[in-house]
Amino acid sequence: MATDAQMQQVAELEVEMMSDMYRRMTNACQAKCIATAFKESELTKGEAVCLDRCVAKYLDVHEKLGKRLTNMSQGDEAALQKIAQQ
């Protein structure tokens, strides 16, 4: 069985990776949606709507590829379970 210390390490890793994903998503959606001329300080309507859709699509692609990767990489999944079970 996993000790408390081990469970906490895995939990911390999850937070760290969520935060890495979030940072990448923000960068990607900024690049896709925000014009770099900066003529005004407000998000335009178009930029705001683009950001909303970009976040939805990013999370969808991230999740879909995660499922695909998990199915493929049995070795890595085994490693994952090995950690989670102890």
């Binding site: 925000i34 005004e40 976040v55």
Partner: peptide, 17 residues
Amino acid sequence: NCLDKFLKMTQRVSQRF
């Protein structure tokens, strides 16, 4: 403008997330 827009962008992305 770039700073202001950056803050509004990160706030909006954070809400949607």
